[in-house]
């Protein structure tokens, strides 16, 4: 989610809540006998507010699991998640009077700080990365589907190469890619062309030694095809060795390799966009559980 004009309302509301909380804290800190702390009524109020904000932020996870619930738009929940989650930090600091005095409160404070920092990191990544991803990966697919798509691309490439070699045998180039899958099916009949056995053998050699290994492990940077520049040179050289009539299927192979590179970029950016959740989500749920126990015990005593 981009942090833009649409956040203005949440930002203003958060600033007002923060200002009221801080202004209220000053006389409380000055005149509370024994000093401010979580065990005083104002301190308890700050704690309830802070924990409620954390709970609200946490409920966004449940909201995502139930997209059909009519409880407000997902985007509104996300904005609330961002601002209430961030606001919970000053609330908890005011609740504790800027001190973690016990082992559990120290752990809770640490969890809160890490959770919020990871959340801020995620928010920044979500703000900047998707735009770049769209620009650099026009053939983006669903992340989880990348292995399936890659398998399809491999089959398509094999089909093209097989088509080329069959065409050589029959005197016509027939490219039938996709191996039966309802994918990019291209049938192309071109004028009869004579490919020498050497050229045929060369295509198979190039495919088996360079293209297929890259398609099998497209994330590896060892292959020259992992680089757009080197891939260009590679396919230009290949085209120069082959008649013009087969340049189009060669171009398809080049396009498949380019798509693979895009999927590699998508995988990396996806990890960048989502890896922080491996810290943020587990710690935030742990924080909510331990924070709830802390609240119960503290209220009891």
């Amino acid at each position: 989610m981009r942090i833009d004009e649409s956040h203005r309302g949440w930002a203003i509301a958060s600033a007002i809540i923060l200002a009221v909380a801080v202004i209220g804290f000053v006389p409380y800190a000055l005149y509370q006998p024994g000093g401010p702390g979580g065990n005083t009524w104002p301190g308890l109020l700050y704690g309830v507010l802070g924990y409620s904000m954390m709970l609200y932020a946490g409920l966004m996870g449940a909201r995502k699991k139930r997209p059909l619930w009519r409880v407000g738009r997902a985007q509104a929940w996300m904005r609330g998640h961002l601002w209430m989650g961030a606001l919970s930090v000053p609330m908890i600091l005011l609740h504790s009077a800027f001190a973690a005095r016990g082992p559990l409160t120290l752990v809770l404070m640490t969890l809160l700080v890490i959770t919020v920092l990871s959340g801020v990191t995620g928010a920044l990544l979500q703000h900047f990365v998707p735009k770049r991803l769209t620009a650099s990966v026009p053939m983006e697919t669903i992340y989880e589907q990348i292995p399936e798509v890659r398998e399809q691309l491999r089959q398509e490439a094999s089909g093209i190469v097989e088509g080329l070699c069959q065409a050589v045998a029959s005197g016509a180039v027939l490219v039938s890619a996709g191996s039966g899958a309802a994918l990019a099916t291209v049938e192309s009949e071109v004028e009869s062309v004579e490919l020498t056995e050497g050229q045929q053998s060369n295509i198979r050699l190039v495919y088996n030694n360079e293209i297929l290994p890259f398609l099998r492990d497209p994330d590896s940077r060892r292959s020259p095809l992992a680089s757009a520049e080197k891939a260009n040179s590679f396919f230009d050289a290949l085209r120069r060795q082959l008649p013009l009539a087969v340049h189009e299927p060669i171009g398809d192979l080049e396009s498949i390799c380019a798509e693979e590179r895009q999927l590699t970029i998508q995988k990396r950016k996806y990890l960048l966009l989502h890896a922080w959740l491996l810290v943020h989500v587990p710690l935030s749920i742990t924080l909510l559980v331990l924070g709830g126990i802390h609240a119960l015990v503290a209220i009891h005593y």
Partner: peptide
């Protein structure tokens, strides 16, 4: 041992 829950030493 309830020292975990202490509000301060």
């Amino acid at each position: 041992n309830q020292t975990l829950y202490t509000a301060g030493n």
